[in-house]
Amino acid sequence: MKITTLIENLKNDSQDLIYESGLSLYIEQDNKRILFDTGKTGGFIANAKKLGIRLEDVDAVILSHGHHDHGGGLLPFFQINSKAKVYMKRKASGDYYFHIFGFNKNIGIDKKVFEEYSNRIAYIDRFTEIMNDIYIITDIEEHDLTPKGNKYLFAHEGNKRVQDQFEHELMMVIKEQDGISLFTGCSHKGTPNMIRAARTMFPSLTIKAVIGGFHLMTIPMLKAFSASQEEIQVLAQMIIDENIQKVYTGHCTGIKAYKKLKHILGSKIEYIRTGSQIDV
């Protein structure tokens, strides 16, 4: 399986690519072409062209959750790809906000996506195999800590602003002969909980890799603020206990938290940047 990071918060200095606070991964596996999230804008499309990737040929899109830094590129994607279904949870079409110190920002996905392209959307609200060996896990129970940064994230229910419970979040699992790989967007439900959910569904399979963001930047706009050592330790210990072979992370994990994880996990963990390519 080959994974290309089409967009992420940082980029490799050697490549002339767009980068932004968002995430989009392009995955090729057994003649299947999958897009996991679409970043904040259409920048991932320009990057794909420079990297020689034809997004017109993408077979399926998986949206990890209903925030604009993961689904903001859906409208421009629909304009270049006429066939791929977009798999998401039903509540991904909701209204979501970032609120801190009196500052309030809409971080939901453009409603045009749901109004103009409803025929391209497949809502998934239970464990589903969407393609051969490609699975969506929708039920993620909160046994372990969830990211402290969640306290700044809200949803609208009717006329009320309520704490976001992330019922719009899902994860993707790709199964191969030698094990499974887990894909997370932001892990708002907590990466240890997502690993546990995958283990519940696939109790006997090796977890080859975990790929995605872990939401360990407490306040995204202030990079100096990262998760507590307790959160870092719980996640690292889960990775060790589950004998996960490799971790590739970026986006909302943040460099500060990544360095703390790197100190514990060593070569088991790597940071992905815009343009990076990995084979799992």
Rank of each mutant, 00 (worst) to 15 (best):
M1R: 06
M1Y: 06
K2L: 11
K2S: 08
I3A: 05
T4K: 05
T5G: 04
E8C: 10
E8T: 07
L10A: 05
N12V: 10
D13H: 12
Q15M: 15
Q15N: 13
D16K: 09
I18Y: 05
Y19S: 09
E20S: 04
E20M: 06
G22V: 01
S24Q: 09
L25R: 03
L25K: 03
I27L: 12
D30P: 03
I34S: 01
T41P: 02
G43L: 06
F44M: 06
F44G: 00
A46R: 03
N47G: 08
A48L: 03
V61Q: 03
S64H: 14
H67D: 14
H68T: 10
D69E: 05
G71M: 02
L75D: 04
F78H: 08
Q79D: 08
Q79I: 02
Q79H: 06
S82W: 07
A92Q: 05
S93N: 13
Y97L: 15
Y97D: 06
Y97P: 00
I100H: 09
F101L: 15
F103N: 13
N104P: 00
K105S: 12
G108Y: 04
D110C: 08
D110G: 04
K111T: 11
K112M: 06
S118V: 04
N119C: 08
R120S: 07
R120C: 05
I121L: 14
I121V: 09
I121Y: 07
D125G: 05
E129C: 13
E129K: 14
I134E: 06
T138A: 12
I140P: 00
H143N: 15
G149H: 01
K151L: 11
L153M: 12
H156M: 13
G158V: 06
G158K: 12
K160R: 14
Q163P: 07
Q163D: 11
D164S: 15
F166T: 00
M172N: 04
I174P: 00
E176I: 08
Q177Y: 09
D178H: 09
G179N: 10
I180E: 00
T184Q: 10
G185I: 01
G190M: 10
A197S: 15
A197V: 04
M201T: 13
I207V: 14
K208H: 07
A209C: 06
A209W: 02
V210R: 09
I211G: 00
G212S: 09
H215V: 00
I219S: 05
P220I: 02
M221N: 08
A224N: 12
S228H: 07
E230T: 13
Q233D: 15
A236H: 03
A236S: 09
M238W: 12
M238I: 14
I240F: 05
D241I: 02
Q245D: 12
Q245K: 11
V247F: 02
Y248I: 08
Y248M: 08
H251P: 00
G254S: 03
G254K: 01
I255P: 00
A257D: 00
A257I: 00
Y258C: 05
K260E: 12
L261Y: 07
H263K: 13
H263P: 01
I264C: 05
L265S: 07
L265R: 04
S267M: 09
S267Q: 11
T274H: 06
G275M: 07
V280H: 01
